[in-house]
Design a binder for these strands. Structure first.
Ligand SMILES: [Mn+2]
Ligand SMILES: [Mn+2]
Ligand SMILES: [Zn+2]
Ligand SMILES: [Zn+2]
Lengths: 147, 147
DNA sequence: GCTTTATTTGCAACATAATTGCATTAATAT
DNA sequence: ATATTAATGCAATTATGTTGCAAATAAAGC
């Protein structure tokens, strides 16, 4: 049983979502999946360099978000960060209601998939659709380094 | 017992924080205090028009935020919105850890001062400093209009 | 009130993020 | 191999935010 490689997986993912198998798209998937935290748009742009136009990157990210392949998290400065959706997300509905942790030191954004956002009691009349919780502080990795 | 008017209150607020009583500053306080929800930077810029330069507006907002007079909330699109701090906020510490509600219909952001953000259990190693919770959905006012 | 001083403002320039229209290119279906 | 449709690249434009510096002005001191 041969371990399916990344590129094959990604190609299937694109086809499944009716997206053509193009270099910029595979590249974005490759980059995002190789990181343990969300990836900022500026970082992606820098890493891709001249391999793809800025506009193409924006369009790839938008398409992926719409299809439920990635989700966007805005950090405390309002910068867009992207992370691969764990599963269960589709074009029709995202299921990324986990907490995000924005480290004040390394500025990484971690998807805390195991931490669900507690339900909330809001004033009468308000109808809550989604909850978006970002915790800030020091991440495990940075806390380690200080010691 | 004469009811103290807004301008007098705002002048005192500025003096207390070591800020000079200037027209743009009073204008921003006037606008923000006259609204029931947070106010976006673009809206402020539009309302102030040529009364103040864009840069001045940015600097006024920054000074107010530093002094604990207002707090900034980023909406789902990453747009900066500002609201007057209820109280207890100072240059040294903000106490605005209430939930914010971003209406999908009218796009207003309400400070739900009465709704505190529940404490959170995060993976070991992570040290939470602040929590920032934005709920999206339909606000009370918009829900009413539909009926 | 007039002068001094420190703060604040306005302007110009710049930086970055994001969007749009359109012609060209490339992926897939036949 | 060709046709069709989707995707890309490029140029131009918009929006947001920042910086440096000279001019204006608020507040303090006389
Ligand atoms: Mn996430
Ligand atoms: Mn608030
Ligand atoms: Zn960190
Ligand atoms: Zn509303």
């Amino acid at each position: 049983m041969a371990m399916e490689n990344n590129t094959e997986r990604f190609e299937k993912l694109l086809v499944k979502n009716g997206l053509k198998r193009t270099t910029p798209r595979l590249q974005v998937l490759e980059i995002l999946s190789g990181r343990d935290s969300a990836t900022s748009q500026p970082y992606l742009e820098q890493v891709m360099g001249k391999d793809a136009d800025r506009v193409t990157l924006y369009r790839v990210l938008q398409a992926f978000e719409e299809k439920g392949i990635i989700h966007k998290v805005l950090d405390q400065q309002g910068t867009a960060n992207y992370a691969i959706c764990s599963d269960g997300c589709s074009a029709h509905e995202h299921h990324d209601e986990h907490v995000h942790f924005n480290c004040d030191n390394c500025h990484k954004i971690y998807c805390l998939d195991t931490v669900k956002i507690p339900a909330l009691k809001v004033p009468s009349g308000f109808k809550v659709e989604h909850l978006n919780l970002i915790a800030t502080g020091i991440c495990a990795s940075c806390a380690d380094k200080v010691n």
